[in-house]
Design a protein around this nucleic acid. Structure first.
Lengths: 132, 132
DNA sequence: TTCCTCAACGACATTTATTCTCATTTAAAG
DNA sequence: CTTTAAATGAGAATAAATGTCGTTGAGGAA
């Protein structure tokens, strides 16, 4: 039923878009770079250009289907936007990414922004951790 | 007295390093990209290569003299490490960067990491805000 | 279903941020 | 002042991402 999701998001249901959406859904990793997606397409024998992957991921971001993260790696990674907001913890040893939620931190952020006369639009919180 | 700071950090006190340190200290902006530093050098008529600017900033980071941030802009910015830890708030309208500290958020982060069996090494928290 | 049109695509050139290479220069120890 | 390893400048090289442009195809119209 992916084609419908695309139409709802205002995007024509083209083959590259459907395939990329599938990869994001079915991948073991929740966080994929454009290159990751591209390589997976190639492995599946799909004929999709790298430029298209970048274009489509950016469109998905605008459409609210995926979220883009810039951890400290110098390139973007994307994950399906499941609606539930969460932050990330990256293990410096293994590179593993763990997601977490904390209502209290969210509240504090809003009040900090407000204290400075701003409204919080979004935020990025990444904890870099190592095994104890 | 910058030369001494460099020696203390284990770096030879070369002209490019001294100049770059000065620029970081004297700039109006606390957060400068490598390009920003390079342009400032050119304006001052200094003959320093761009590659050197990148090298020196990376060395400064390793030596703990500066901190590197990767906001959402696709390139790194650097600020002098004054020792006092703080997080950042970026205004989406003006691009202005405001610094803040919040002890409570810090504590929560540590306990979240601990809950997952990790030790917090460092973190990156950026609030993207707009004027109210 | 077939046709038509514009959005989307693939291939590849280009840009941007950054790093690498290597011949030359320089800080600072002797 | 000499020596020498470390640092530098110039420019080539790389990686991530975007732009260009001729071709293709999704999906509404006929």
């Amino acid at each position: 039923m992916e084609a419908q999701d695309l139409k709802k998001a205002g995007l024509k249901a083209t083959l590259p878009r459907i395939r990329i959406l599938q990869i994001l859904e079915e991948s073991n990793e929740r966080h994929l770079s454009a290159e990751d997606v591209y390589k997976t397409l190639l492995e599946h024998g799909e004929e999709v250009g790298l430029a298209t992957v970048y274009r489509v991921l950016t469109q998905f971001e605008s459409a609210g289907l995926v979220m883009r993260h810039n951890f400290d790696s110098g390139h973007s990674v994307f994950e399906l936007d499941s609606g539930d907001h969460h932050d990330h913890m990256v293990c410096l040893k293994t590179g593993k990414v763990i997601e977490f939620q904390n209502e209290e931190i969210e509240k504090l952020q809003k009040s900090i922004a407000a204290e400075h006369g701003f409204e919080l639009v979004e935020h990025s919180l990444v904890l870099y951790v190592k095994p104890k």
